Simulated scan of single mutants.
Amino acid sequence: MKISEVAKLSGVTVRTLHYYDEIGLLKPSDTTEAGYRVYSNKDLETLQQILFFRELDFPLNEIKEIMINPNYNKNEALNKHKELLIEKRKRIDGLIALINKTIKRDNIMSFKEFDNSKIEENKRKYSEEVKNRWGNTDAYKEYEKKTSSYDKNSWTTINEEMIEILKEFADNSNEDPNSHIVQSLVEKWRAYITSNFYNCTKEILSGLGLMYIGDERFKENIDKYGEGTAEFMAKAIEIYCAPHGSEK
């Protein structure tokens, strides 16, 4: 299937599929002579697994780490996904039943149906289990080691530093992304990540730049400091990391 057909079938945008390819999460099995992506049935199965993980709020970088692990067990993961989704369905069924009773004016003052703690706790446990079993990259291990010692004050300082740098990107968004001042900001951002989380190589930084515009949660958070900041930041990182040109 061509990329437009996959987008129509899955509900995932063409831009997102491009992004999944660029970060190595979902690469098409083939390309046409004109350079257009072509996806096989196996590729579609992989996309389905990615969407299951996304349904459970796994970040894309963690999904990639998990799925490239040679010990990754698809059926085991799917069974766990099913368990968690069944819990979600039970909660939704409970809320629907409560709404119906309220419409009938049964005057039932019940709030247990709103309780999402069990689902969140099971998601947390599953996330930890998955990371322990399949998320074993050096960057993740370094991240775990560094952040394990951070207390509340440490996180406050780290977050304040992050906000300061993002505001600098926003304040300089009218500059040429290739300018010295902007490229210095990229270097500052890279040093911030390396100092606080893990060794941010150019390869990792390039992937992060793509994530800032490909993942709506990242884009929305960065754009809080100025509309278009995420796009500007991603472009500056692209120049800094000097990646190959984009594919069709």
Rank of each mutant, 00 (worst) to 15 (best):
M1R: 14
S4V: 12
E5I: 10
V6A: 03
L9R: 08
L9M: 12
V12C: 07
L17K: 14
H18Y: 05
Y19R: 09
Y20R: 01
D21P: 04
D21S: 02
L26K: 05
S29I: 03
S29N: 13
S29M: 03
Y36M: 03
S40A: 03
L44E: 04
E45S: 14
T46W: 11
Q49A: 15
E55R: 15
P59D: 08
P59Q: 11
E62D: 10
E65N: 14
I68M: 08
I68K: 08
N69Q: 04
P70V: 09
N71L: 12
N71T: 13
K74V: 15
K74I: 12
N75V: 10
L78I: 15
K80V: 13
E83W: 03
R91A: 11
G94Q: 13
A97F: 01
A97T: 10
L98G: 01
N100P: 05
I108W: 00
K112E: 15
E113L: 06
N116S: 14
N116L: 11
S117T: 13
I119D: 03
E120C: 09
E121W: 04
E121V: 08
N122M: 14
N122C: 11
R133G: 07
W134E: 03
N136C: 11
Y140D: 08
E142I: 01
T147A: 06
S149F: 11
S149M: 14
N153D: 15
W155H: 12
W155Q: 11
T157E: 07
I158Q: 04
I158K: 07
E160W: 00
E161F: 01
E161Y: 02
I163S: 04
L166R: 01
K167C: 07
K167T: 02
F169W: 04
A170N: 00
A170K: 02
N172M: 00
S173E: 06
I181E: 09
I181D: 06
Q183V: 02
Q183S: 05
Q183E: 09
L185D: 02
E187I: 09
K188T: 11
A191Q: 15
N196Y: 01
N196W: 05
F197I: 07
E203G: 12
Y212Q: 09
I213E: 10
F218V: 05
D223H: 10
Y225D: 00
E227S: 12
T229V: 09
A234C: 10
A236I: 04
E247S: 15
